[in-house]
Design a protein around this nucleic acid. Structure first.
Lengths: 341, 341
DNA sequence: ACCCTTGCTTCCAACGTTATACAAGACGGA
DNA sequence: TCCGTCTTGTATAACGTTGGAAGCAAGGGT
């Protein structure tokens, strides 16, 4: 049997609203009354019903996070960070994954669990700008991830072009010249890996190295198996890169496995740089050099964006494009194993 | 501006309840009325307010999942499976992680987001039986994971003892005799890794192999770094196992990294078996032999347990102990690399 | 023609909470 | 003494939804 404000009020001999006032720490309550009510609350074990409170106040205290795939450690780690960041603002996280399907991404933007959420953090892969423009739900939406849209929603993402250039710069500094980009996908200019590919091109161009388009290797997806298949295809086609810049760590890991099977040494024959800084990359036989986006910052900024827009009662403040930091983690896949270690 | 049943009713020229009836697919509504209402719904873009519905019906359509750590791929993959299983029953998943802290686990059982959830799936690590017994919240609770409690809650977990025995059996069949167990923790008989340790002991005993307690190696946590530290300590103590059965894949991966650094070959010098079948284990330089719990089944059974108890209007049906299947995935860390592959 | 049934719709109340308006008393200043 | 102001508590009305009862036609049996 549930105990409500009414029960507490009856038990304490005051009105329902007075109990509500005590619960909500309303200022003007005599200490005597307050204590009397508190005693009744403790005696009955009263817990507020958040659903009713939310119906009344119009807020649920829940924000949704929609990522492509929880099985991808990057998104899992990010989800963990979002849960923590949300908790800091007394929000809880409702989770969904879109499996990288445009349809599911669309569904999520059109009102994930209709009205139970105060805001939505979405990492789109396939969604197009017109899909987002057609959105009717009015809960604040924050976009994260590499894709960019020219739309009135906050967007949180590291500077992907600069990050990619840093990775390629590192490989160039090591003397590599035939640097493959592993992770192209589709022909659209807005393909998900667009920016990192641009960074690859830009840094090569800036260094006067001819970008060999044959070294832009496509993948079918973003997982280890896709990286393995993509790398195998590249090698089967007769190409011999001396370095690989992978779209993400999973692809890099799959590629390294294939190289290991074929007797290619990392980094002696082929240096590898990934992207995401998964914990996984720090424990392989060859630890992975990678670009580390600041996941905590991404999560924190995304949550704060929603909290602020909710507090701001509507369109206060212009759309923001925030760029958390990143760092290049130099490890064995480019430097080789340190003898001292 | 939000549109409610009232708005739709006014627009369609019928009562609020009739609109509600249409929305809920109530049988006795004339096709004409139904269509008229439907048109109004479409015109106004009405979406039901789940908070209000919940207040009235007592259900939210949300189940919570609390796991120790989302950064652990096992839990991330499991969370993904739970999201999918829940979606099959029109439920959405609210996520939290407990960081393996007893306090946070306790908080979660005592009414995660007070009353907004219909049920809770919890994977406890540190929680004690008395904590669970003291629980006041009456939403259905399903436990998953290795730890067992003699309490009236459904529990979904593979047969950990049998699974551990299978793993050890595999190592024995390969001729290994000095098999370490890497992943003991604390002295409590109810320590989290209890059952797998029991399985290790049982299978050794059944095979007439003396269990060397010096080969039961402790770890500080469940991640790769803990496995690395535990393995290093074991080796530093002068022990030379010819096989390692690790509590989970992450520990096994950490241990393999340490062995690689020290020039020990896997599996020639030391064979390794893990537990969880993380995708990660399939792409290392040495792929990992591991026990694969049926994660889809665990997720499905956990969700179904909650759905059934909610449908059953209270204590219908006795407490269940369900054991989804598992399989031993034999890979390079015990078999060596196949030349053909 | 009457009543009874059946089918559809409406009205009302309730879920537990908080906002608003207001009442009752206390207090200080003129 | 009286009036305004401040403090504290109460009564009532919402928030959006659904369950149950009641209303109201139309149709069939007698």
């Amino acid at each position: 049997m549930r105990v409500s404000l009414k029960d507490v009020a009856a038990h304490a001999g005051v009105s329902v609203k007075t109990v509500s006032n005590v619960v909500n720490k309303y200022q003007h309550v005599t200490p005597a009354t307050r204590e009397k009510v508190q005693r009744a609350i403790d005696a009955l074990g009263y817990r507020p019903n958040l659903t009713a409170r939310h119906l009344r106040k119009g807020r649920t205290g829940i924000i949704a996070l929609a990522v492509p795939e929880l099985g991808n450690p990057y998104f899992a780690e990010l989800a963990g960070a979002v849960v923590d960041a949300a908790a800091a603002h007394d929000y809880t996280v409702l989770l969904d994954h879109t499996q990288g399907s445009r349809e599911r991404e669309l569904l999520v933007t059109q009102g994930f669990r209709a009205r139970v959420i105060d805001g939505l953090i979405l990492n789109p892969l396939e969604l197009e700008a017109e899909d987002l423009a057609a959105r009717t739900d009015d809960a604040p939406l924050v976009l994260i991830g590499e894709r960019r849209y020219d739309l009135p929603h906050d967007h949180i993402a590291i500077d992907n072009i600069a990050a990619a250039r840093t990775a390629v710069r590192h490989l160039l500094d090591l003397g590599r010249r035939r640097i493959a980009f592993l992770g192209a996908r589709g022909d659209r200019p807005s393909q998900p890996s667009h920016l990192r590919l641009l960074g690859w091109q830009a840094e090569l161009a800036a260094s006067g190295v001819t970008a060999d388009e044959a070294l832009v290797a496509p993948v079918e997806g973003w997982d280890r198996a896709d990286g393995a298949a993509g790398m195998a295809a590249l090698l089967d086609a007769g190409h011999r890169p001396d370095a690989v810049f992978a779209y993400n760590d999973l692809i890099a890991i799959g590629a390294m496995r294939v190289m290991s099977e074929r007797g290619l040494r990392v980094p002696e024959d082929v240096a590898v740089v990934g992207f995401d800084d998964l914990t996984e990359g720090r424990y392989g036989a060859v630890t992975l050099t990678t670009v580390a986006p600041d996941k905590q910052a991404i999560a924190r900024l995304a949550v704060e964006s929603i909290v602020e827009r909710l507090a701001g009662e509507g369109g206060v403040g212009a759309t923001r494009r925030l760029h958390p930091g990143f760092a290049l983690m130099e490890r064995e896949s480019t430097l080789g194993r340190r003898p001292a270690n």
